[in-house]
């Protein structure tokens, strides 16, 4: 009995220590990345390439997600609002819901699935095939060459994706609202514009920047710390997506508290 309790306490203690160690390692990696951003050299070519890969090529998936989410949101709010004769709030709730929450969160999660996995797999493969060691022997800092351009590109392009996603999501609500729910087109747009405030949009964009930072940081961290072989790279890829997704949801709650409950 005492032996079982000791084993349980021991394994719990080890798990807690490992978790604290992992948080510390990620925090240190983040601090090192931020510290390297301002120091030359800056690899512009890698940065532009990362902007295209992370931002431009994520547009279809983020756009489609926003379109369907906006449409479904309009249907749900209409059905819910009908219970207390508040169907007219559909345009404003769709707009506020998209720009404050669903645009950044769903956009962030889609980018996490697409980008964190590909960054972790790419850098992890580079690690196991000694390409990162080769970078060092060629007098190139892997943190500067691989991590900084990707993290900066994601931090700057995800807010743009979120903005585009917001517009497409509102359009999704508009299409459903005018074609299925009987809203007047001009009135729908007017309603959307009237109730939407600048801070609604800006807060979503700030969230997008934070989520972009998280996605690229997790991809780079797990890629750089990948284990050996195909199994190691696979585990790194999975860990990057899971960590990025959980951190996005946690950061979303913290940011929402900070922005809207003060």
């Amino acid at each position: 009995m005492i032996r079982s309790a000791t084993l349980l306490l021991g394994s719990t203690g080890r798990a807690v220590l490992n978790a604290i160690g992992a948080i510390g390692a990620v925090a240190l990696f983040a601090a090192q990345t931020i510290g390297q951003i301002a120091r030359p050299p800056f690899y512009w070519r890698e940065f532009v390439s990362a902007c295209i890969t992370i931002g431009y090529f994520s547009l279809p998936v983020v756009g489609l997600t926003a379109l369907f989410t906006g449409g479904a949101l309009a249907l749900q709010i209409y059905a819910g609002g009908a219970r207390f004769n508040a169907e007219a709030v559909v345009p404003s709730i769709v707009a506020i819901g998209m720009v404050r929450e669903l645009g950044p969160v769903l956009g962030g999660l889609m980018v996490a699935a697409r980008v964190a996995s590909s960054i972790a797999a790419e850098i992890g493969t580079m690690k196991v095939t000694e390409q990162i060691d080769a970078l060092v022997t060629l007098s190139t800092n892997p943190m500067k060459y691989l991590t900084v351009p990707r993290v900066l590109a994601a931090t700057l392009t995800v807010p743009v994706l979120v903005l585009i996603g917001d517009i497409i999501g509102i359009m999704g609500g508009y299409l459903v609202g005018t074609s299925r729910l009987g809203f007047n087109a001009a009135a729908y747009l007017q309603n959307t514009a009237d109730f939407l405030e600048f801070w609604d949009i800006a807060s979503g964009l700030v969230k997008g920047a934070v989520f972009g930072f998280i996605v690229a940081l997790m991809g780079c961290y797990f890629g750089m710390t990948s284990g050996r072989g195909a199994q190691g790279v696979g585990a790194a890829t999975k860990a990057a997506v899971v960590a990025a997704s959980v951190l996005i949801l946690a950061a979303n709650y913290i940011l929402t508290e900070a922005f809207f409950t003060a």
Binding site: E122, M126, E130, Q131, D133, A134, T137, S139
Partner: peptide, 19 residues
């Protein structure tokens, strides 16, 4: 970096940048 600039290295698997 100055030290490493004096070195060249051929890696076992080549370690060529595949991108």
């Amino acid at each position: 970096d100055a030290l490493l600039s004096r070195f060249g290295m051929l890696f076992q698997g080549g370690a060529l940048f595949d991108s």
